[in-house]
């Protein structure tokens, strides 16, 4: 490795700090960047710098934003009476890709985890309660994960919101589309059976 110039070694070292990038991949990426056009590498460097300088958390929903309030929270087409609570910005992105939700979001930034010492003060539950207390929200959809921590966080939020005149719902768990029933776990099957619905005859 020492036969590379110092600037290339620096780039390989920085790239190999990225998740999932080992020394060899970092070396390959560095070689690719070395051979790329100057305009491409400049664009890459500028976009990284710009991202670090401009991206912050939305003051309302805590998703990633270029300004104080994110694009979704500013959009008048979104239903501001409907609030979906998710763990991370990536969960919000998944829901947005599905196109199934037209309300606003609240990003918790994690879930309650007793063994990791993550309590109610470590995630954004108080700001959620304040948003609901504001009165504009009619329904809160709890879309935390279906792990033990995600479920118990949903149960905790439900308790915290009990005293407000707001409907609290939980996303359904069930058999995945195209899934094979014999490979579905008992917990999911139980939930799917509990949430079965009537088939409407056209």
């Amino acid at each position: 490795m020492n036969h590379y110039p110092q600037s290339v070694l620096n780039l390989i070292r920085e790239l190999s700090r990225l998740p999932g990038i080992g020394q060899k991949t970092a070396e390959r990426l560095a070689m690719h960047l070395l051979q790329a056009k100057a305009s491409e590498t400049t664009a890459l460097a500028e976009s990284i710098t710009a991202m670090k300088q401009t991206v912050r958390l939305c003051k309302r929903c805590f998703s990633l934003s270029d300004g104080d309030i994110c694009r979704l929270c500013r959009n008048p087409q979104r239903d501001d009476g409907l609030l979906c609570v998710v763990e991370q910005p990536a969960d919000m992105a998944s829901l947005e890709r599905s196109g199934a939700f037209n309300g606003l979001y609240h990003i918790l930034g994690g879930v309650l985890s007793p063994m990791d010492g993550i309590g109610p003060d470590e995630i954004r539950i108080d700001p959620l309660v304040q948003r609901v207390r504001g009165g504009a929200v009619a329904e809160v959809v709890l879309a935390t994960s279906t792990s033990v921590e995600g479920e118990s966080t949903a149960a905790y939020i439900r308790e915290r919101l009990r005293r407000f005149p707001v409907q609290v719902t939980r996303i359904a768990s069930g058999v995945p589309i195209g899934g094979d029933l014999k490979y579905v776990d008992q917990v999911t099957l139980k939930r799917a059976m509990e949430s079965r619905r009537k088939i409407d005859v056209p």
Partner: peptide
């Protein structure tokens, strides 16, 4: 799975006790 203990995860207090023991 032989026992999932569905109801523990439905309560943060039960989850906290089970976490403490584990």
């Amino acid at each position: 799975l032989t026992a999932a203990y569905f109801h523990i995860r439905e309560s943060i207090l039960k989850t906290a006790y089970a976490s403490y023991w584990s």
